[in-house]
Write a protein that binds this DNA or RNA. Structure first.
Length: 512
RNA sequence: GGGGCGUUCGUCUAGCGGCCUAGGACACCGCCCUUUCAAGGCGGAGAUCACGGGUUCGAAUCCCGUACGCCCUACCA
């Protein structure tokens, strides 16, 4: 599926929005968009579509050091490839633009000042060194570190003194000393944190750049996000963000924390499969609809005895209560199986189109194939469609159809339980047969069976020998379809080549 | 160290107090189909529901501990 197709599909959704549900996906362009990161994105997207809400894409680029344009591109490409179209965000705009945090600095400043004015936040002049010292001390005394509150109640006088010393203040939120902050997580249920374990945290650096927990909150607030769905690694940020909403006198949105995806070693996804950027999956020959289906069913159930669902079924059947609470292991084998299912369901024309780039990359098809070439390759692919699990397997699968020279061990021509003599007889007879036979699968089938009977040999032996001679492989698509596809000329050439190969051996075959 | 969350076949899950001698999917094994390989059909093996205590006539399901795993614990996101 080309990216533009998914976009068209997106327009549909945009027109059918009927609820006020607004969710967002907020990646930082600080790394390639790997498959681990798509999990929360997919859940958000499905949640939005299921509820006929709005899916917002916002880019968190305040980490100027690590943000890269190519990473942004990777995010956009990946989401589009998976068909996760966004209703508001980069390149599509929307009523709450801009959708890049660096463009919203003013709004953070405004809200920060408000907090400062109401006394819910205060300026902190502690230096990094001082803070580090506190941290080390806490560690030595084996007690948790929490901001000691040095600057919590500075008088205006004291603040002026600090300023005069040239100290630049960070801004901290005044967190209540007692009580607890809790919420009903959409996925995990009730979660609560004791406020005294949180401590006054920084919302704006001394450099003036606001910090993550603050910017997300302000953005979610000003963009009217109703449901924040994200990875479980954000759970401990949630109480802080709720505290900011409260300090602002605003009602926090609903939160839902999706379990992380882990590798088979149990570790956070990263190393092997998980590390691959989503766009790499395309190069590995996976279909976006298969990857979507797999990711949408990994750790999520849909009350059915199957795991194959169309995009619409997933949207319709989705229920956030059926998102598992425990981490899910990415299973590449199951993805492979699912990809095979989707490949088999493709129309031949579609399958051919998707295979073409892979075949061209290997030089098996010319860059601008003629109709004849295309027809031939299509025929070959039609025989391999149900035999490959990824598009990347297509080149190897059809190579024998297009190559001029088959490279195989001639010993394979002597099928097990037969002899060199048999092989020679078979190849010669097959050549004779192919010179005159109608080159159509049904006729070839009939003729070869008759031949087998005349020779007094088993079909397995005759067909096996011919298969190797003509395909160079011991496993291939049904023999007569293959012969018909190859055509008389190629078949005769290959049969002859095999026969000559055997004649070089004299009376005894080399040991296999 | 502290806090939070999690724990049902190898993997993804169903299960919300009796339909469970725990169901499905992938993978695995066997049989059928068959010229090979796939695909398909049929069948099999595989989980004392992490462990230990309760509550209850009855627990995978409720409560409490323990273990293990993961995440967080920054003037990173």
């Amino acid at each position: 599926m080309a990216p533009c197709d998914t976009h068209t599909e997106g327009r549909n959704h945009e027109m059918t929005q009927t609820s006020d549900i607004r969710v967002r996906m907020a990646p930082g362009p600080t790394g390639a968009f790997h498959i681990g990161r798509t999990r929360a994105a997919i859940v958000n997207w499905i949640f939005a579509r299921h509820n006929r809400g709005t899916f917002v894409l916002r880019i968190e680029d305040t980490d100027v050091e690590r943000s890269r344009p190519e990473h942004l591109q990777s995010i956009l490409d990946s989401l589009r490839w998976l068909g996760l179209n966004w209703d508001e965000g980069p390149e599509v705009g929307g009523p709450f633009a801009p959708y890049f945090q660096m463009g919203r600095l003013d709004s953070y400043a405004e809200y920060c000042d408000r907090l400062l004015g109401s006394g819910h936040a205060y300026k902190c002049y502690c230096t990094t060194q001082e803070l580090d010292a506190f941290r080390r001390q806490a560690e030595q005394e084996r007690r948790p570190f929490r901001y000691p509150g040095t600057c919590r109640n500075l008088s205006a006088e004291e603040q002026r003194t600090k300023e005069a010393e040239g100290l630049r203040a960070a801004v901290r939120l005044r967190v209540p000393d007692d009580g607890e902050t809790s919420w009903d997580d959409l996925i995990l249920g009730r979660i609560s944190y004791h406020n005294d374990e949180i401590g006054d945290f920084v919302i704006r650096r001394s450099s003036g750049i606001p910090l993550y927990n603050f910017t997300v909150t302000i953005d979610d607030l000003t963009m009217k996000i109703t449901d924040v769905i994200r990875g479980q690694d954000h759970i401990s940020n949630t109480p802080k963000q709720i505290l900011i909403y409260r300090a602002l006198g605003e009602e926090p949105p609903a939160f839902g924390h999706v379990p992380l995806m882990v590798s088979s070693e149990g570790a956070k996804i990263g190393a092997r499969f998980g590390a691959s950027a989503v766009v790499d999956l395309a190069d590995m020959g996976y279909l976006p609809e298969a990857v979507f289906n797999y990711m949408a069913t990994l750790g999520i159930s849909y009350e059915a005895d199957s795991d194959i669902f169309s995009r619409d079924e997933i949207i319709r059947l989705f229920d956030i209560d059926h998102v598992s609470r425990s981490p899910a292991v990415f299973d590449a084998e199951k993805l492979d199986w699912m990809n095979g299912v989707y490949i088999r369901n493709l129309s031949l024309g579609d399958f051919v189109q998707r295979c073409l780039p892979f075949l061209q990359a290997r030089g098996l098809v010319s860059s601008t194939p003629s109709d004849d070439e295309l027809a031939y390759v299509s025929r070959a692919l039609s025989l391999e469609q149900e035999r490959v699990r990824t598009l990347a397997q297509a080149p190897e699968a059809v190579e024998f159809f297009v190559t001029d020279h088959l490279d195989y061990d001639p010993a394979l021509l002597i099928v097990k339980k037969s002899s060199l003599e048999d092989a020679r007889t078979i190849l010669e007879a097959a050549e004779d047969l192919c010179r005159t036979a109608e080159f159509e699968a049904g006729d070839l089938d009939k003729e070869f069976r008759a031949l087998t009977e005349r020779l007094g040999l088993k079909t397995g032996i005759v067909f096996g020998t011919v298969r190797v001679a003509v395909t160079g492989r011991i496993a291939a698509p049904p023999l007569f379809d293959t012969l018909a596809a190859l055509g008389r000329e190629r078949v005769l050439k290959r049969l002859g080549a095999a026969r000559r190969e055997l004649s070089r051996w004299g009376e005894t075959p080399p040991v296999q």
